Amino acid sequence: MTDHPTERASTPKHGLGDALRTWWSGLSRPTQWLVGVPAIILLALLPVLKPPIIDTPGTSFGGVMAQFAMIALIAIGLNVVVGQAGLLDLGYVGFYAVGAYTVGLLTSPNSPWNQSDDWLNPSWAWLACLPIAVAVTALSGLILGTPTLRLRGDYLAIVTLGFGEIVRLLADNLSEVTNGSLGLSGIAYPRVGESADKPQGVFSAGNVGDRLNSGVWWFWLGMILVILVLLIVGNLERSRVGRAWVSIREDEDAAEIMGVPTFKFKLWAFTIGAAIGGMSGALYAGQVQFINPTGFNIINSMLFLCAVVIGGQGNKLGVIVGAFVIVYLPNRLLTFEVGGQSLGDYKYLFFGLTLVVLMIFRPQGLFPVRQKLLTYGRQVRRAVRRPDATTEAAR
């Protein structure tokens, strides 16, 4: 006995976010590119167009967007560790610091390890140091993860928290190498677009134009890195590695019983997340051209975790939205004052209240991850939606 057509047509109502995701998933791959590429171009043009609604009058909008691209990279890397594999990492800022100090130690004139005068030409020194920073940070994640990933829950969180503090204290106390609290200045950056009015290039901090300032160029470079990382992480999610991460996150004991080598895949997640954090640290070092230990404190590590929690753990696009919230709102509120105090100075209060409200009403975050068949999800959905030949004949 077949159901009435009107009964089959009735489907439960979903919210706008679910409707958008369903619409996007139903598009073919070429159509997704036709829709996605113009959206990316529009996003790239935002700091140039500076729409009055979203502009930040109190600071450079291009600089804000450059910071957003950098934090988005961090959120994607931390999401691999926390959102995908379910490993609570409270010291992720340590990997961020390792990547930044790798670039700083190799290119800063204050460093005894400066190689800019030997085999690193200043014109492409930052670009050459970027893969080195990623490799060194991935190695540090591998070294840290090998003995510590046998721990779980709060114990792992305490160990990673200690790692972040150890990196900061080493940078503060190894004065002969890191210049201590004075930091490393004159760090290399891409020397591109040198001209009479921009003798140091478009990426230089001296490029303070109204439209195409250095922040806009760093934002574009950060967007390229974010897209590359998203492609890599997305392919991993749909592979055997991603399915293993999800099983570990949901129930590590059950995954172990089913034959998943949990330690190996947790180490994969930790190393990949560390490498992405090191890439963001290298981006930060080149952008500000100065680093010191105070920029890598535990508060920043908590803000990185806030971006993942607010956006939605396990949703790589959701954590990018969380990163935007973390960066944009404090800068947007700088021009608003209450009692002579800028609202931007209360960002920790606002983020704390936001987390409390989210944990009560929406603990999965603004854009919760939706479980689905990761590898053949598109083909399965099409097969399910295709009308059955027998049913059509019966009509």
Rank of each mutant, 00 (worst) to 15 (best):
A389S: 09
D197F: 12
I291M: 03
D172G: 01
A138Q: 09
F270V: 11
M70W: 03
S111C: 07
I40M: 15
I41L: 14
T2L: 11
G17F: 00
G201N: 05
N121V: 13
P47R: 05
V288I: 14
L225W: 09
M279S: 02
L144E: 02
P30G: 01
A383H: 11
I74K: 04
Y155W: 07
L49N: 04
F219W: 14
P57C: 02
G141A: 04
R191P: 06
L366G: 02
L317F: 15
L358D: 09
A323W: 11
E237G: 11
V309G: 07
L46S: 02
F350V: 11
L283D: 04
Y284G: 00
V319K: 15
G234F: 07
V192N: 02
N331G: 08
F367K: 00
Q32W: 01
L225S: 13
M258L: 11
K50H: 05
L283M: 14
T160G: 03
D197R: 07
G164F: 00
M65E: 06
E7H: 02
P330R: 04
G15L: 12
D388C: 02
A157D: 08
G322W: 00
I132T: 14
L142Q: 05
M359C: 09
P199V: 06
L182K: 03
K264T: 09
G312L: 10
A97V: 07
R362C: 05
G164S: 03
A125N: 12
T262R: 01
A269F: 13
N213K: 09
I41D: 15
K50D: 13
L334W: 10
F290Y: 08
R238K: 14
A196K: 03
A85Q: 14
S175C: 04
F290K: 01
E256T: 13
D388F: 02
L236I: 15
M1G: 08
A393S: 14
R168K: 08
A171F: 07
G91P: 12
V319L: 10
Q84A: 06
Q341V: 15
G201D: 03
G234E: 04
D89T: 10
V103L: 13
G58V: 08
I54W: 10
S214W: 14
G222M: 06
A389E: 15
I132C: 11
D89G: 10
W218C: 02
Q289L: 01
A72V: 08
M258V: 04
I326V: 15
K198D: 03
G186S: 06
G377M: 08
V82N: 08
S116F: 05
L43V: 10
I299W: 03
L174H: 00
A269H: 12
R21S: 03
A274H: 06
L161N: 01
P109H: 01
R21D: 14
A188Y: 05
P199I: 00
V384H: 09
R378P: 05
A285Y: 02
F203A: 07
R238M: 05
L142G: 10
T391Y: 09
L333V: 03
A196D: 11
L373E: 15
Y284M: 09
F163Y: 13
K264E: 10
P51R: 04
T160C: 11
G314V: 05
L169H: 01
R238P: 00
G277F: 02
